[in-house]
Nucleic acid binder design. Structure first.
Lengths: 240, 240
DNA sequence: TGGTTTTCTTGATCTCGATCAAGGAGCCGT
DNA sequence: ACGGCTCCTTGATCGAGATCAAGAAAACCA
């Protein structure tokens, strides 16, 4: 049974995103016939276990990957050989777009937990683009969004205080989860403090201390990797 | 007289870029007929003076913009209202891709000096994509490259020491200028120390001191906004 | 051209967060 | 359930870089 179609039936959210796209495995605006074409295109995969790599720097680019369930981190190596986290990716987001023009991946993508992936062979995607002009627009949109995500990240790193970065990081996760229909205020972090610190450009001890401080202030409640956001408004105030 | 065709004749550089594209005003892989179509598409504009805005946050998205000559900076506002520079853009680079999916620009783009711009109305670009499949690929490539540029930036900001960031910033400019066929080792910075500091996430005084220190070490020579790179290898060593 | 403004440099001080260190808690496979 | 991991917390110290300040040098403009 093809679960792409199932998802399409279950999750049609008209105009919920810009571009008027629906949120499927890959957010595309297709109907009947085109959807069938997409079905043939998408490759199912065995789910990734925690620590499994989806691709590595230098791997030949073949496909884009949409996360159906789970989460991943992507990272590169700084010029002096240290790991630098460039992003965390949640359910519904698309990876691999940095590789399109040089046919080679420029970062590593690793699963942070059990993660199901939807593989979209790019050559097939490209030829389908010719038959389905709206798909071309969708792809442009997805890439545009990725560019904006990165710019947003750059803005975040620009802020001076660690407290702000931390607040923004938490709020960003919160918003992304809410978009996916999360019901409560609990963030289940799949990444380590180490990863968060690396991502935000601070020491992991500082992440720990910052969270502890926010707990003291009753802004949130820490239970290991679960962060319960108690006072979102305060968090927003800190963020700016 | 149409100077796009002139440029095409003068500057054909086969396979000089990935994607097998040529570097025109916009790097596209077109021949005869398609090129004529492009000619009709491109809008000429009066050159921007220093300080002129190409677009601002919130402006309706209409076109992509390729820089024919000059330089620009793009910046957003952090959540607490301060300016955050997200990029410097040199001759041959393309701006505006962050706006494609929401039809609205998400950053400000301002000229750092007298700058000539080549405007590419996006709707026309999109319909031309249907007739010229290679254009579609090119556009994907340009956006992919922009994504990678941002990731690279994130990697750079990840490095701890200011010295490294400074070295990488200078080398990055150097490489981009060399690609455009620069002959010597002189960087003519069109941006202020303030902008550089903002971009690199450090105080502008620190930029000043860092440059002074590199001059003491005979790595470079400062003459106002002109930086003569004396010892590129040392710079690379510092960068990592 | 001279005067005003912006930008750059350099110095002195202070603070935030890195780093080092050590103990505790959770998680894994066997 | 146990030992051996990795991951997280918390404390103490230290230094890189922010900030404040003030003067010099360019750039701009009428």
């Amino acid at each position: 049974m093809n679960n792409l179609k199932q998802e399409a039936k279950l999750k049609v959210r008209p105009a919920c995103e810009s571009c008027g796209v629906r949120t499927l495995c890959l957010p595309v605006s297709l109907d009947g016939e085109a959807l069938t074409l997409m079905d043939d295109l998408v490759k199912r995969r065995a789910p990734l276990k925690k620590g499994d790599y989806l691709f590595r720097t230098g791997d030949k680019f073949k496909s884009l990957y949409a996360i159906q369930y789970g989460s991943m981190k992507s990272y590169g190596l700084t010029m002096d050989g240290k790991e630098q986290v460039t992003g965390f990716h949640l359910t519904g987001e698309v990876l691999g777009m940095d590789a399109i023009d040089e046919d080679v991946h420029h970062c590593n993508a690793v699963a942070l937990e059990k993660t199901e992936i939807c593989e979209l062979p790019f050559s097939a995607l490209e030829s389908l683009q010719n038959d389905v002009p709206s798909l071309q627009r969708d792809l442009n949109c997805i890439m545009s969004r990725e560019i904006r995500r990165d710019h947003h990240m750059l803005l975040m790193l620009g802020s001076t205080t660690v407290e702000q970065r931390m607040a923004r990081f938490l709020l960003n996760l919160y918003e992304r989860l809410q978009k996916r229909g999360a019901e409560n205020n609990v963030l289940n972090l799949s990444m380590t403090r180490q990863d968060i610190g690396n991502y935000l450009g601070v020491a992991f001890e500082t992440v720990s201390r910052q969270l502890a401080h926010m707990q003291d202030e009753s802004i949130l409640e820490i239970k290991n990797r679960s962060i319960h956001l108690i006072d979102v408004e305060r968090l927003e105030a800190i963020a700016g």
